[in-house]
């Protein structure tokens, strides 16, 4: 299953037989995934495939019925979300969860405070991160009325400030204009260049196929394929899952 080239880097995240059901419905069934250190991995699948459920499990917001999650070889499936964050797992949410009661800078500060309790020092670090992403002009404004693209970027900045080694992005592109999409691709490549491993949920196929080195496909709570983007695009099961049963999108 694994590519030999990638094996040299070792895996940062391993899911083994991860299973979860909600009141009799299998949300996830025996999922096995290995994420290679430093890779950009796309997680795709039709609506209701269990992608966000999987994210919630990796980041600790949902418990699972069975299985194992290993992060840097350490079993983490019983840890609380905040402890997983401290180990280096960062995430964004499908609908950005921004602290609307704080300025943009303070939003990023919350992430930065994880590394140092000193407010002044952390503020500087937060400002640097904002500058890096060309958001410093917004530092003092309140995020309530920001457009969706800025909210998504802010959420990434905030996660970035907590120095993650694995970053889970839940729909980084959906809802963005073509220009904003290009900026986001830039940002993601920048993150990857810093050595951060990225796991991305995305519906915009063109984008995810271009940017990822590896694609995992979920359907009805099961992993139906896992391969390079080129192979996945040719995979019959995947094409069936997408074309055969078209579901309403939210």
């Amino acid at each position: 299953m694994m590519h030999d080239i990638d094996r040299n880097n070792g895996s940062i995240l391993e899911l083994k037989d991860v299973t979860k059901s909600f009141g009799g419905i299998h949300a996830l069934q025996g999922i096995n995934i290995n994420i290679q250190r430093g890779a950009i991995v796309g997680l795709i699948g039709p609506n209701g495939a269990g992608k966000t459920t999987l994210f919630n499990m990796i980041s600790g917001f949902l418990g699972m019925d069975r299985g194992e999650i290993r992060f840097n070889q350490k079993e983490i499936s019983r840890l609380y979300p905040y402890d997983r964050s401290k180990l280096g797992i960062g995430r964004t949410f499908q609908l950005p969860k921004i602290f609307n009661n704080m300025s943009v800078l303070d939003n990023v500060l919350i992430g930065a405070l994880q590394k140092s309790g000193d407010i002044g020092e952390s503020k500087q670090r937060a400002m640097e991160i904002l500058k890096d992403i060309n958001m410093e002009s917004l530092a003092d404004s309140f995020p309530g009325d920001l457009p969706i693209a800025s909210r998504k970027k802010l959420e990434i900045c905030r996660a970035l400030a907590s120095s993650p080694t694995l970053l889970l992005l839940d729909e980084a592109i959906s809802g963005l204009t073509p220009k904003e999409t290009l900026e986001m691709i830039d940002l993601i490549e920048k993150l990857s260049a810093k050595g951060i491993t990225l796991l991305i949920i995305e519906h915009v196929m063109k984008f995810i196929m271009n940017i990822s080195q590896w694609i995992v496909v979920l359907n009805h709570g099961q992993k139906i394929a896992e391969d390079t983007p080129e192979e996945v695009a040719r995979n019959e099961t995947v094409i069936d899952a997408y074309l055969g049963k078209r579901e309403l999108s939210c």
Binding site: S59, G60, F61, Y80, P81, Y82, D83, S85, K86, G90, R91, F93, K97, I98, F99, N100, N101, M102, I110, G111, Q114, E155, R158, A159, A161, S162
Partner: peptide, 12 residues
Amino acid sequence: GDEEAAKSLGVN
């Protein structure tokens, strides 16, 4: 502001 987001940033 948002408890889930806070947790995801390492806040207990």
